[in-house]
């Protein structure tokens, strides 16, 4: 590999942010490295574009999972393994835990971080869907201070976020879900493990007094950037749970997807597959609601 590039390592957030500004070229932050190392291998030129690599794994401000007043903070450096093992997340955000479980393989989940998954911003990034569905925000730190952005607004297009060169993704803030919130994550891959998501679906909802009070439906790998199927959500919100026709409503999901993406080569598959996933999520929601 190239010899001009510099390697930086610090456990101090301020020092890291300073480096991002002061350096004469692009400094690439690296944590688990599972995406970056693959990209560098595919395109050696890429490394030449960086003046340096900054290892951020020792910065404590970016680590850990904790509940604060009305939200849960998940540090950018939290690995998928830590998400899976977190009892707090299992209890509050099961769809996020299931998504983390569905990512890559054990050695990947041991290294790859939620911050990395989001910053890489692939259309198939499995944690983006749940984060959007749970209406998470990111806290971006820079020398100029912090700014808070909804995850839903973070990704401009696949592999492109609004995070500036001088910023580090510090942590995620997930609002505490109201009591009785149900969430589910489903994924279709071409095999049972270590499979890129062909299509996925997150549904987060709350049924109160027999009515759907809150609903978020976010597909993955179906549309270029993670966003909820708002038209469908509008149709469902406020409906009596017993009157939800999951078959009819799920068909609308496929149509809404096509409205966003247009007809693509993969549409003949993704449309019915998404329909299936939405139908199942709604059926499960109904079952759970009716059992309560």
């Amino acid at each position: 590999m190239t010899e001009d590039i510099k390697f930086f390592q610090t456990d101090n957030l301020e020092a890291a942010l300073e480096l991002l500004v002061e350096s004469s070229g692009v400094i690439k932050p690296v944590a688990g490295g599972t995406d970056l190392m693959v990209k560098i291998r595919e395109d050696r030129e890429l490394l030449q574009q960086f003046a340096g690599i900054l290892d951020i794994t020792n910065i404590s401000e970016l680590q850990g999972i904790a509940q604060e007043q009305d939200f849960v903070r998940i540090g950018a450096l939290v690995t998928h393994r830590e998400i899976i093992e977190s009892e707090l997340l299992q209890e509050k955000y099961p769809a996020l835990v299931d998504a983390a479980r569905a990512i890559g393989s054990t050695p990947i989940r041991n290294r790859a971080t939620i911050g990395g998954n989001v910053c890489n911003a692939a259309a198939c990034a499995d944690t983006l869907g749940p984060l959007v569905a749970f209406e998470a925000e990111v806290v971006l730190a820079s020398q100029a201070g912090e700014r808070v952005v909804p995850v839903a607004d973070l990704v401009e297009e696949p592999y492109q976020t609004i995070i500036r060169q001088d910023e580090l993704l510090r942590h995620f803030r997930l609002p505490l879900p109201a009591e009785g919130t149900f969430s589910s994550f489903q994924k279709i891959g071409r095999r049972q493990a270590a499979a890129i998501t062909r299509i996925s679906l997150v549904l987060a909802a709350r049924v109160s007094q027999g009515k759907v009070e809150h609903i978020k439906i976010v597909p993955g790998s179906a549309i270029p950037v993670p966003e909820p199927l708002t038209a469908l959500e509008k149709r469902i919100k406020g409906q009596k749970i017993g009157e939800i026709d999951s078959r009819e409503l799920s068909a609308l999901a496929g149509e809404e997807m096509v409205k966003i993406t247009g007809e693509r080569w993969s549409t003949p598959y993704k449309k019915p597959a998404l329909t299936t996933l939405v139908r199942r999520a709604l059926v499960e929601l109904k079952e759970v609601a009716e059992n309560e």
Binding site: F7, V30, G32, G33, T34, M37, V38, I53, D55, T106, P107, I108, N110, R111
Partner: peptide
């Protein structure tokens, strides 16, 4: 367990 091909 980690993939040593992906670790600097």
């Amino acid at each position: 367990a980690v993939n040593s091909c992906l670790v600097l």
